[in-house]
């Protein structure tokens, strides 16, 4: 990873120096080595604090909505999964492709600090990742984990190591593609009775504090004014006065991003209450795949998405209700 970072820094400095871009969007480190913040760098000197390692999880694509409204071109570093969001935003005319220089960076999976913590790593003051093992240095001693066990949910169900869009790539050690089934969790829910499933979601959503982190981090949630913030909509709410409202927020959000959600996994990553929001989105993805054929949002910028397209092969509505859609 160090090598990759060196190249990233060098290339960013060059592009800045040549005036091809006037700023760089990347990650900056924090207090404990694992707490990175997306940041804009405008000079070679500032770029010395650019980082890229096992904790560069935040997806930088959404920042480009605001960044491409500014003067000049921005350099952005995107991981493979982030490029899907980038494409989707281009498709939705949210970002101006002309104003971005995309460098795709290799990724072997990002580590979930919460996973380390829930496995007993209390008081983490530094983390080392040697590719196989993750060693957490804590105030109470070191702890070692198999990297596969402590990856973020989005990395455990990685969509692949290919970048869907880039101007340049920085890949030092090509990462092996590994198969995974991201629908296992959805299958388990599908196997439940409707009542069990309702209980499951009620239990999870009851934890929601309506902080909106899931929505605000989501690249598909790019509405200028969200209906839940619009006082005139009649559904604006900052908290859930009852359990119906609690569920409605999430169900509406899931439906609104259906067909546009790239399964980037940011919502699940940021939820302070560890609500498995990806299961909601993946349920819709799974069903859309079944009803309208395999589709992955963000692979390109011009294909029509299943819910905004019509073909004669489209499933009839009764097929959906036969699946329990009217329960």
């Amino acid at each position: 990873m160090k090598k990759v970072l060196d190249i990233m820094q060098k290339r960013a400095k060059q592009l800045l120096g040549e005036g091809i871009v006037n700023r760089v969007i990347g990650w900056k480190t924090g207090e404990f080595g694992y707490d990175q913040t997306p940041a804009v760098f405008t000079s070679a000197a500032e770029l010395s604090s650019l980082v890229y390692d096992s904790f560069s999880a935040p997806n930088l694509s959404k920042y480009l909505i605001e960044e491409t409204k500014k003067e000049g071109k921005a350099l952005v570093f995107l991981k493979p999964c982030d490029t899907y969001s980038f494409n989707q935003l281009i498709k939705e005319h949210r970002i101006d492709r002309e104003k971005v220089f995309v460098i795709g960076v290799e990724c072997s999976g990002k580590v979930d600090i919460n996973s380390l913590k829930s496995r007993g790593a209390v008081g983490v003051i530094g983390v080392e990742d040697n590719g196989e093992k993750v060693i957490a240095h804590t105030l109470y001693g070191d702890m070692e984990f198999a990297k596969d066990d402590v990856l973020l949910e989005k990395c455990r169900s990685c969509k692949g190591k290919q970048h869907m869009v880039f101007d340049e790539l920085i890949i030092v050690n090509p990462v092996k593609e590994e198969k995974n089934d991201r629908f296992i969790g959805v299958d388990a829910l599908d196997a439940m009775t409707p009542d069990e499933r309702f209980e499951f979601w009620r239990g999870q959503l009851l934890k929601c504090i309506r902080c909106n982190a899931c929505r605000n981090v989501c690249p598909a949630c790019s509405c200028i004014k969200c209906v839940f913030d619009n006082q005139n909509s009649g559904v604006a709410s900052k908290a859930s006065p009852d359990t119906f409202e609690e569920q409605m927020y999430h169900v509406i959000r899931a439906f609104h991003v259906a067909g546009r959600c790239t399964d980037c996994g940011e919502c699940t990553r940021v939820c302070p209450q560890d609500i498995p929001l990806h299961l909601l989105n993946r349920k819709l993805i799974k069903d859309m795949n079944a009803f309208y054929g395999e589709y992955q949002a963000g692979t390109d910028t011009d294909s029509r998405a299943p819910l905004t397209n019509y073909t004669k092969e489209d499933v009839e509505p009764n097929v959906i209700s036969d699946k329990g859609g009217d329960k």
């Binding site: 940041a39 309506r210 902080c211």
Partner: peptide, 8 residues
Amino acid sequence: SACLGCGA
């Protein structure tokens, strides 16, 4: 600059 304006 990076703040999402969520209320977490």
